[in-house]
Amino acid sequence: MKKLYADGSLLFVAFIWGATFVVVQQAIAFVPPLLFNSIRFLLAILLLLPFVKRSSLHNKPSNTLLFSGILLGFFLFIGYAFQTVGLLFTTSSKAGFITGLSVIIVPLLSILILKDKPRSIVFLSAIIGAIGLYLLSISDLNGLNFGDLLVLVCAIGFALHIIYTGKYAKNFNPLFLTITQLLTVSILSLISSLIFEDYSHITYHDFIQRDVIIALLTTSFLATAVAFFVQTKYQRVTSAARVALIFAMEPVFAAITAYLMLGERLTEKGMIGCLFIFTAMLVAELPGIPFKKSKPSLYEKA
């Protein structure tokens, strides 16, 4: 029952993330994307602070917790920075499906990072996903564009975040770990914004635009504060591969939201590409024949 509740909570997170693709894309038409991320994650921290118990403040977070939170925050920063900037150059539906490739990258990186024994099915799913990404990318007249490549880097960042969340979440207070990683994202986003983004055309009126306010409220509360606390808390009772599979629904929700709110449509090749990617997400979790007999890895289904 506990795992079922965890899976349901994580599916809700996937829905929120998929649904906010459109609102973020509309907001960054007024506010630079890195600055938007910095404000979004800072607001999320402020929303979480009231839940820190006074008694907990006397327990100074350990250096190990801080390191773990900063590392998770760095991977999150990579994911959101490249995703948000990528949305300037590609559609929200394409960005959603490319981001979904992280579910395929998770088991592949676990082989390199955590030394999990490789399974033949992992490589099959990677090939299927690559074909899907190709079909999806050429579905537009301009083919593979700069935004698609940025979002692909974001997928790698999110995959690393899932892997290391599974590694660290069981060892630390989920609220402290969540706040530490969100603060890291906010600081890195602000620094990057000051270096790379142009503030000359930004005015006070840009921040009070309806699209910006709605995006900041929905993303800071639901898609950041709630979402990452839920992930950090419930990934302790399920496997990283199961989490990645649940998050595979995010691009589906993103495409549905883009259709309902923006009227975006994929071509026939694009829809076939999406089908390939979604199939790859499912195939990655099928039982495969390992190259060597070994103990079940972290990424085997529980």
Score class of each variant (00 low, 15 high):
114 L>D: 09
140 D>A: 12
104 I>R: 00
130 A>R: 06
127 I>S: 15
130 A>C: 14
123 F>C: 01
137 S>N: 10
125 S>Q: 01
140 D>R: 13
127 I>L: 15
115 K>Y: 12
135 L>D: 12
99 T>L: 11
99 T>F: 05
92 S>E: 05
110 S>V: 06
131 I>W: 07
121 I>K: 03
103 V>W: 03
110 S>Q: 11
134 Y>V: 15
125 S>H: 03
137 S>I: 12
130 A>F: 15
138 I>H: 08
111 I>W: 10
105 I>S: 04
137 S>W: 10
90 T>M: 09
109 L>C: 13
102 S>R: 00
103 V>T: 14
101 L>E: 13
107 P>W: 09
102 S>T: 13
103 V>N: 06
98 I>T: 09
112 L>A: 12
92 S>K: 06
90 T>A: 11
96 G>A: 09
113 I>H: 05
123 F>W: 12
95 A>D: 08
91 T>F: 08
126 A>F: 15
110 S>E: 11
111 I>H: 06
131 I>H: 09
122 V>I: 13
121 I>C: 02
102 S>C: 09
95 A>V: 11
104 I>D: 01
138 I>E: 11
134 Y>K: 11
121 I>Q: 11
119 R>A: 03
105 I>C: 05
127 I>C: 14
114 L>Q: 10
91 T>E: 13
87 L>W: 09
119 R>L: 13
99 T>I: 07
115 K>D: 06
98 I>S: 03
139 S>M: 14
136 L>M: 07
111 I>T: 10
95 A>C: 10
119 R>D: 10
123 F>K: 07
136 L>T: 11
109 L>R: 09
132 G>P: 08
131 I>V: 12
113 I>E: 04
136 L>E: 10
87 L>P: 02
127 I>P: 03
111 I>S: 06
128 I>L: 10
137 S>T: 14
107 P>I: 04
124 L>S: 00
101 L>G: 15
87 L>R: 02
104 I>M: 03
130 A>D: 05
111 I>D: 04
104 I>A: 04
113 I>V: 11
119 R>E: 10
136 L>I: 10
92 S>Q: 07
125 S>E: 00
139 S>H: 14
101 L>N: 15
92 S>L: 05
103 V>M: 12
120 S>W: 01
92 S>P: 12
111 I>F: 07
90 T>H: 11
109 L>V: 12
92 S>C: 08
118 P>S: 06
93 S>A: 15
98 I>R: 00
103 V>K: 00
106 V>Y: 02
136 L>Q: 09
96 G>Y: 01
128 I>G: 02
120 S>H: 00
107 P>V: 05
102 S>G: 07
97 F>I: 00
111 I>N: 09
112 L>P: 07
135 L>S: 07
89 F>S: 14
108 L>E: 04
90 T>C: 13
97 F>T: 01
98 I>N: 03
112 L>H: 08
105 I>R: 04
140 D>L: 12
104 I>N: 03
116 D>E: 14
130 A>V: 14
98 I>M: 08
131 I>L: 14
104 I>W: 00
91 T>S: 14
98 I>H: 03
125 S>L: 00
107 P>H: 07
